[in-house]
Design a binder for these strands. Sequence first.
RNA 1: GCCGAUGUAGCUCAGCCGGUUAGAGCGGGCGUUUCAUACGCGCUAGGUCGGAGGUUCGAGUCCUCCCAUCGGCACCA
Length: 680
Amino acid sequence: MKPFYVTTPIYYVNDRPHIGTAYSTIAADVLTRYQRLRGRPARFLTGLDEHGLKIARTAEAQGLTPQELTDQMQEPFRQTWKLLSCEHDDFIRTTERRHKRKAQALWRMIQERGDIYLGEYEDWYCVGCETFYTEKDLLEGKLCPQHLKPVERIKESSYFFRLSKYTQPLLDYYEAHPDFVKPSARFNEVKSFVREGLRDLSLSRTSFRWGIPVPGDPEHVMYVWFDALSNYMSALGGPVENEPAPLFEQFWPPNGDLVHLVGKDILRFHAVYWPAFLLAAGLTPPTQIWAHGWLTVNGQKMSKSLGNFLRPEPLAEAFGVDPLRYYLMRDVAFGQDGDFSHANLIARLNGELANGLGNLLNRVLASIVQKSLGGRIPAPTGPDTAEDLTLQAEALRCARAAAEQLDAVAPQRALEAVWELVSAANRYVDRTEPWALAKLEDKSRLSHVVYHVLETVRMIGVMISPFMPGKAHELREQMGLHPLMATVGCDLWPSVWGGLPSGITTQPGKPLFPRLDKDQEAAALENLGVKLDAPGSHAAATSKAQSPKSQKPAQEPKVTEPASPATQASTDTSISYDDFAKVELRVGLVLTAEPVPKSDKLLRLTLDAGDPAPRQILAGIAQHYAPEALVGKRVIIVANLKPRKLMGLESQGMVLAASDETGLFVSAVAGDVKPGSLVK
RNA sequence: GCCGAUGUAGCUCAGCCGGUUAGAGCGGGCGUUUCAUACGCGCUAGGUCGGAGGUUCGAGUCCUCCCAUCGGCACCA
C-alpha cells in the first residue's frame, strides 16, 4: 500500500497551543490513526518554527539566547499534543541541525539549477509580522496594518527565487492535479492568484542573524518561509545528497502520498511557493494541500490583538480528551470555518456520546449480558430474522460510508455515518427486546440478538478509535477484547460481519461516557469562566476566549523586483521648474462627499474646480474624515492628473493631503478664493 | 470594482446529470417502552427552497438580473 504522510503546519514557537492549533493537530492525528488502521504505512509530522526576528528580540528582552528561549517555549507544545493523544511520529524544530542542513541542501539544489540569484531589496518591514510591506499597505503614520506598530525601512542585498518563471509551470501542474488544493473553492483562489502573474521572491535577509545561513554566503539568512516549508522534507532526511534517506524515499511523493494540513491564511505559501521551490529543485510537490477554516468561539470572532487564548488543556480536563477530540471533529466541517461552542460540545457529549453510544454499550453489556448470559459474549445461534439482516447490512453500509468519508478527509461526515449505526443498533435493541427474551427458558434467541448488538458495538469501537483512541480502548476492554494493534498490511476496518469472538468474558465497567447533569455542566462552565446566555440551549455564549489562529504571519511579503542600477544611482530628487509646471494645481470647493460602498478608505467627492461641471474625485481619506466635515471646504487638487477608475468610479484628479503619525489632513487655502483658481 | 462561494424548517445543514406529497440531526410538541447513564424508540415541524423574470410538459435543481452575507484580488490618481 502506498505510504501516507501527513503534516500540520509548524507552529510559531512564540505562541502557545490553542484550540486552533489543537484542531489541526488532532485532525492530522485522526487521519494518521485511520490510515494505520487500514494497514497503510503512515507518518505524522508536526513541529515548531523557531527562527525569525521576533524570536531573537523576545530572547534579547529576556536576557536569553534565542536557542534558550525556544528550548523553553517548545515544552508546552509537546505537553499539549501528548495530553490530546496526538501521537506524532516526529516533532521537528527548525533550529535542529538536521533541519538546517537539509534546508541548505534544498537551497543548493535550486541554486545549482539556476533559479536563485543575487539582487537588492528595499521595503518597509514589520518585526511583529516578520514581513515586508510596500508603502501602500501601511496605515497612516507608517504603521503595520496587522500590528498597528511602526515599521522600519530596510534595504539589503538579497537572494531572489525566480518565481516569475514558474507561473506557467504551476498552472500546468494545477491543471494536471485537480485535487491538489482542497476545498476546491480555495483552489480557485490560488489559481486566480497565480494567473495574474508571479513576481520573483526575495529569499534571504541580511538584517538579522536568527535563521539559517545561506550556503556559501553566511552574511545572508534564509527567508523564514523557505526555512519553514523545507521542514516537511528535512524531517524525512530529504532532499537526498550523499547519505541515504530511507524515510524520504519511502514517504515523499511520488512514492508516498503527502498531505499538508494548513490554515487558510497560509495556503498561498503551501500551494504556490512550496511547489515552485520543489519544481525548481527537480522534486515532486505534495499530493494534496488541505486548507481548513477558522474557529470562532461561541460565535464570536476573535482577533489576535485581544491576545486571549482558548487553551485546550482546561477543556480536556473539564470534558475529557476524547470528547473534546470528538466534538472538534464532529461539529466542524473540515475546510470550512467553524465555531467552538461550549453549548454544542455539551449537547453532543450528552446526546451522542453518553445517550447514544455509551448507553448502548451499557444497556446490553452491563445489564443483559451480566444478568442473563453469565457475563460472556454469547454465540450467534441463527437463523437470522429480517431485523438481524437489516442490522448486519446497516453495519457494513455505515462502515463503508465512514471509510469513504475519511478517505476524502471529511471526518465530520465519517462520524455522522458511524452514529447512524449507533442509532440503528439502539433501534434494533428496542425492536428485539432482549429483556423480554431473557425471561424465556430458551436463551438461543437472546444469544443471537445480543451477539448482534455487541458485534455492532465492536465495529463502532474500531471506527471511533482514530477519533477517540482512549475510549475505543476502554470499550474493547469492557467487552473483553484485546487492544487493537494496527499493523502494516493488515486492514482492520470492519468489512465483514461476525468478527466478534464468542465465549470471552466481559468486564463491564463504569459508563463509557458519563452524562453531565445540569449541576456538573454549570460547574464545568463556571470553572472555564464561560457564561451561556441560555443554559441548555444553542444560544450564543460568551467567554474570555481567544482567537482561532494563524500559525504564521497573516500577510505574505510584498515583494518587488530588485531595484535597477539606474534607480539606485539617482539620489538627486530635485526637479526643474518645467517639471513642476506640468502639474496643474487648483482650488476645489467640495460640493458633496459620500463614502464609496464596500471601500473602507475611499470617499467620493464632487468639487467645483472652475470646470463647467462638478468634477468627481475619489480620495482615500475615509478613515480620517467624515463626509459631512468636508463639504464646503476648499482643498487643493491636482487637476490635470490622468483620470483613473477606482472601485468602478472614475476619479478625475487627486486631493492633496498631508499625514504624519497623528493623522491625515487635507490641504486647504487660507482664504475663500474662487474655486478653480490656480495654485502655484 | 473584478473573480468566486453561499443564501432550503427555530438552529446546523443534505438535496447528483431538472421530474411523484422538499429531507436529516438538534431543539420544541405529543406518545410509548423499561434492559440502560430519567437513557431508548415512535410520531410531529405544514418551510413563498433570498427576490424578480425566463427556458421547459415540468425547476431549490438550468439561464438572466437584483438583494444579502462571506471569501480572494484590486483600490488612498
